[in-house]
Amino acid sequence: MLKSLRSQLTTLWTILSHTFTRAETVQYPEQKPYLAPRYRGRIVLTRDPDGDERCVACNLCAVACPVDCIALQQDVREDGRWYPEFFRINFSRCILCGMCEEACPTNAIQLTPDFEMCEYDRNNMVYEKEHLLIDGPGKYPDYNFYRVSGLAISGKDKGEAQRELPPIDVKSLLP
C-alpha cells in the first residue's frame, strides 16, 4: 500500500517537474530542425565535373533497391557514353534507405537532406530524370567515371584513362 502510494507520488512529481523544462517539440515548418549534410532524403542524379550526366545506366541502383522503386532504360549516346533513356523513381514507394547511393559505381545517385515531399496526388511522387537531375556534382566534386574507366568516349580515347598505357600497336614486332 505504502509502496504504491510512493510510486504514485513519484509519478506526479516527475510529470510536474517536466512542466518547467524546455519543450522538445519544434514549430515545424516555421522552425526547421538541424539535418546533417549526409541525411538521407530526396534522391538526386548528379553531373560530373565536366557537366555531363554521371549516370551510366548500369542498373545497380535498381537492383539494390529493396522496394524496387527505381526503373530505368540504358542507351548509348552518339559520343559513346552510356546514359539512361529514362530514369524513374517512385518516391511513394521509396524508403530513403540509401542502398542505391551505396551501389552506384559512378557517384551519380545521391541522397540529399531534403525530405519534404508531400503531394495530394500520389502520381506526383513519381520523379522522372528531368526532376531528378541536378546541375552540380553533389557530395563528390571531383569524381568523373569516364576518366577512370577504360571505355573510350569522344574526347577520351583508349589509353587516356587513369593509369593506362597508349593503345598497343598489334603489328609492331618490338617487345
Partner: peptide, 16 residues
C-alpha cells in the same frame, strides 16, 4: 529473384 523496378516500371502511367 532480383528482378528490379517492379514498383516503378509502370509508374509513369499510373502509380497504382
Amino acid at each position: 529473384h532480383r528482378y528490379s523496378g517492379r514498383t516503378a516500371m509502370r509508374a509513369a502511367l499510373s502509380v497504382h
